[in-house]
Amino acid sequence: MTTATPRTAVGRRGRFGDWPIAVTFLGPAVLAAVLLRLWPAARAVWDSLRSTPFGLAPTTWVGLDQYRWLFTDPAFLNSLKVTALFGIVVNPLQIAVALALAVLFNERIRGVGLMRTLVFLPVAIPQSVSAVIWAVAFRPDGPLNGVLALFGLGGLRYLTSPGQALASIVVVVSWIGVGYWMMFLIAGLKEIDPNLYDAAALDGAGRWARFRYVTVPQLRRQLAFVLVADTVSNLLLFAPVQILTKGGPDGSTDVLMNDIFERAYTEADVGAAAAATVVLTAVALAIVVVQFRLLSSGKD
């Protein structure tokens, strides 16, 4: 690395490298991250070790008992399970669909700009409104079943069935999210040198081979971003669940963040909500560390 650095730069870099200039570049962002995210998160760790009997001050020290209590709560254990199931389904699905759409909408088609925008648009309206729209669409007497009836098919139960509710939530959040992730992948596709495709075509590579051996490797950076950001976003997601099902029926859609929201905002159980938040952040961290490992090992 240093060998590639020209003499001028080396000359300026002392023992502390670009430290003074780095402070000016990174200072505001680090300050924002520490003050607006890490500090309140540290507060949550502290809060999680204290009990607030229905929000009453003063609080009492309960230490790790809070976590012990949490991990024996069937509702919390259920939400861990639902979150895992949700993540396993929704992340690969969203990334695959977003990638397919990005490739399609990267073609030179008439009106492609408008098409992209229409697919992106759902993320731009308030989630409460998205939820209202889908609450009506999913009604057993609603338009989705109406369309099925036109084809002579029986209706589904959607949000009213413990077996179909999570899948319905996946549909809603994918409708919202797919266009958003697609945009990042399209930006990545635009960076790929068209000469690479021409060369591959000369070698007789078909459409699939060009996708497999040119597009995917060249898109690695954007795909890595989408993989990490999408996974984390879905882990932290709760608004559609909170509005559409409140975690039901029978707890089948009670993702972890919804559980936290309820403890924090409805019940005002500050201690338990903080402990659950710590657990969620730890889970997110573990997943991201694994993803980083996989991505960097795949590079070599």
């Binding site: 995210r37 507060r43 929201f261 969620l280 952040t281």
Partner: peptide
């Protein structure tokens, strides 16, 4: 830029987006 603590700063930025903002909004 090259400077000591770069990895730490990067880790801080990554952790900052792992924290559920709605859950820490109250404090």
């Amino acid at each position: 830029l090259r400077f000591p603590g770069r990895t730490t700063v990067f880790a801080v930025m990554v952790v900052s987006f792992l924290i559920p903002f709605d859950a820490i909004a109250i404090p």
